[in-house]
């Protein structure tokens, strides 16, 4: 029997104008899994997440979510189907309050109906957000903004959470805390595709890892079988 996949990326190619940013990238995420994509700046990992979420349209290949083709869709269509992206740089709505940011996260009609329940769950997960609910998002610390960005993404009750560089610019203690929350989210049944520059951190968190370089997947394997040496070589392309 064929196993069900949360996400299947099959040979996608993405261009920015003439620039070929992703070359035949494929990967799979099973439900319950955390999958890591590791790579330097400009290796194409953010492009990959944006293409899955629908911000970018791949020119070839397919993206499937639980067997349904989602490539070619706009972000507001992929969100409805259960994809949620925590964007690079957090991108919280600075002039909205924390509460308003979360409300915006429950934008789809289905999410809006379940808003109060999910809001309580998010507040339980990040009590700090509840404390600061009436504060403008732009006035919070980087770590708090990152929690908000994740909380906002959870408000749509995603089946697949895409996380783009969530540890960027944060203190190690806070990163540790946020990763703990991610594992908790994952235990509640959300598949996670994690994109990071931090090799150690993401290898520890995931069940399977891919290393990207210059728009291509150059190394894949489960963290136990990959040596740190191997990963580093692939990461830097030496």
């Amino acid at each position: 029997m064929q196993r069900e996949l949360a996400l299947k990326v099959d040979n996608i190619n993405v261009f920015y104008g003439e620039f070929h940013a992703l070359w035949d990238v494929s990967l799979e995420v099973e439900p319950q899994q955390i999958i890591s994509v590791i790579g330097t700046n400009g290796s194409g990992k953010s492009t990959l997440l944006n293409a899955i979420a629908g911000l970018l349209q791949p020119r070839g290949g397919d993206v499937e979510l639980f067997g349904e083709k989602i490539s070619g869709m706009q972000p507001h269509q992929t969100v409805v189907r259960g994809v949620s992206l925590v964007p690079e740089g957090r991108r919280v709505f600075g002039r909205l309050t924390v509460y308003e940011n979360l409300i915006m996260g429950a934008y789809t009609p289905r999410a809006r109906k379940r808003r109060s329940t999910v809001l309580r769950m998010v507040y339980d997960l990040f009590p700090r957000l509840h404390e600061r609910r009436n504060q403008l998002a732009s006035t919070m610390s980087g770590g708090e903004q990152q929690m908000l960005a994740i909380g906002r993404a959870l408000m749509s009750e995603p089946k697949l959470l895409l996380c783009d560089e969530i540890s960027l610019g944060l203190a190690p203690l806070i990163i540790k805390d946020i990763y703990k929350k991610l594992e908790e989210i994952n235990r509640q049944g959300v598949a996670i595709l994690l994109v990071e520059q931090d090799i150690n951190r993401s290898l520890k968190a995931c069940q399977y890892a891919h290393v990207m370089l210059e728009g291509k997947v150059v190394l894949s394997g489960n963290p136990a079988s990959l040596t740190l040496e191997e990963v580093k070589r692939a990461y830097f392309g030496v």
């Binding site: 706009q74 972000p75 507001h76 919280v92 709505f93 600075g94 002039r95 308003e100 934008y107 906002r152």
Partner: peptide, 23 residues
């Protein structure tokens, strides 16, 4: 209002607004 907040959100960061599912 929800619409009013959505309009403010879109004027704050249009990409983030798209990502939460706003058209």
């Amino acid at each position: 209002t929800f619409l009013g907040r959505a309009i403010r959100a879109a004027s704050d960061d249009v990409v983030a607004a798209k990502l939460v599912g706003a058209n």
